[in-house]
Design a protein around this nucleic acid. Structure first.
Lengths: 263, 263
DNA sequence: AAGTGGTCTAGACCACGGG
DNA sequence: CCGTGGTCTAGACCACTTC
């Protein structure tokens, strides 16, 4: 049994992309062209194209054509200070982005009350269904949707503090928590890689075949968890980094081409 | 324009899975059944099924049927000691796995000489094309393929040391490097989330719709990078974690259900 | 108007897996 | 053997984009 036709066609196109004959942003031959070139039916062509789309290599736009995807990657350098405020007066996202010349935008800030889902309850060490304060926002880079973030606070910690305000807090919630007696002493990050839910795909504008990168950060103040932050990034345009110990040697010499650094 | 038929069908099946009417491991109705249930052609049914498969929700096996995917997640707790040897005499993978009762297996150990690709050269701060020593292995958990790992050493560092041996080094290469004057003083981890290459999918047995999680760890010894380790995990069954500072409060109370911890 | 991809039908033959 | 999904054909109509 030979390789199925649609995979042969996919392989052929993949090779042309890998070799650089089809560069990022360039248009692939139309489905009609491919039918003729390979002498197959349109459905077979579409199977081949779908396979590449699911690998994240290409992207079809109705009425326009099919194009090789271009991706830049943004590196998010995570804080590795137990206190979580290593980068100056603003929050990590803003200050580090500005340092690197990327235009940061936050939008759709919202404050909500919810009941803890099992996922949230387990990480905050509270009971499922207990009230929590949620502060959420969307983030954009160069006008494109990039990440969604939600922070969960146990109600007793947020109550009576600035955390209840329905506005963004420019100086950062780590500071607000500290001012209220909850000095952050450490955190745990859990990083997942998965396909987006429909809602996430809709927000991020992910084509089929684009995964998301999800980070759970639980911040602790000595004896208890004080905050859970869940961030969902467009996976294939984001990289997260951690630096531990002495990495002073880094960055002196040639590093990956078009990467941008972010915090 | 209403929602396309195949998406309506996908949505219907998704709901049945979310509600628990179709549990992990259970078989979906056959394509013939779905044709009849929704009064559509087989191709339309297949579009719906393909959509769910690409979200990683279900998996089809030829001749058998289509099933709801079951996934356990293994948490890899990354070392956060600059020296990189926090967990005892064995390497991180083994000791932590044993601690948690997961059966670890390493296989297909190989040592190779190669020339640095641009990716490797940039991170090791050497020139593209310079010779590097590569030590690679595959890892299995409970008999299932789980990750692929390659470590790259500049040739001048590896030369004349145990790193050139074509055998696994049970006490860990961090120790070997230290014994040869390259004490690790820090590292940088870069974490990516993407769709697998065909080779990776073949090795990991990933169905369409399963992303991979890729970690680049560059270890430094004061003035220079001494090792680059690239690990590729089956993304949707792996979580990586970092703990910084005091997280002693963690783990005392209910944590995520069926997770297993690993390091 | 012409070209693109998106959706859908109604067939067909095949390989694989399990009784 | 029969039921499953895998591959493939040859049509059709549609919406959207570009000119």
């Amino acid at each position: 049994m030979p390789e199925p036709l649609y995979r042969q066609i996919a392989e052929h196109l993949r090779t042309r992309i890998d070799r650089g004959e089809l560069r990022p942003g360039e248009q692939l031959p139309s489905e009609a062209d491919l039918e003729e070139e390979f002498g197959v039916s349109r459905n077979t062509v579409r199977l081949a194209v779908a396979a590449l789309a699911n690998e994240g290599l290409i992207e079809s736009r109705a009425g326009r054509g099919t194009f090789v995807r271009e991706r830049r990657t943004i590196t998010v350098l995570q804080s590795t200070e137990p206190q979580g405020i290593p980068l100056g007066p603003k929050d990590v996202f803003k200050s580090a982005l500005e340092r690197e010349g990327v235009v940061p935008e936050q939008d759709n800030f919202r404050m909500e009350f919810r009941r803890a889902t099992p996922e949230v309850a387990a990480r905050l060490q509270i009971e499922e269904g207990e009230p929590v304060v949620v502060r959420r926002m969307d983030r954009f880079v160069d006008g494109e949707r990039w990440s969604q973030q939600e922070s969960f606070y146990p109600k007793d910690i947020a109550e009576g503090t600035e955390l209840m305000s329905p506005e963004d807090i420019p100086r950062g919630t780590v500071r607000v928590l500290a001012e209220n007696g909850y000095v952050q002493t450490g955190f745990r990050d859990e990083i997942n890689c998965r396909m987006p839910t429909r809602e996430e795909a809709a927000f991020l504008g992910s084509p089929p075949g684009a995964p998301v990168l999800e980070i759970f950060r639980v911040a602790y103040s000595g004896e208890r968890p004080i905050r859970l932050t869940i961030t969902v990034y467009a996976g294939d345009s984001t990289q997260v980094a951690y630096e531990i110990g002495d990495v002073s040697a880094r960055g002196e010499s040639g590093r990956g081409s078009r990467d941008r650094e972010t915090g």
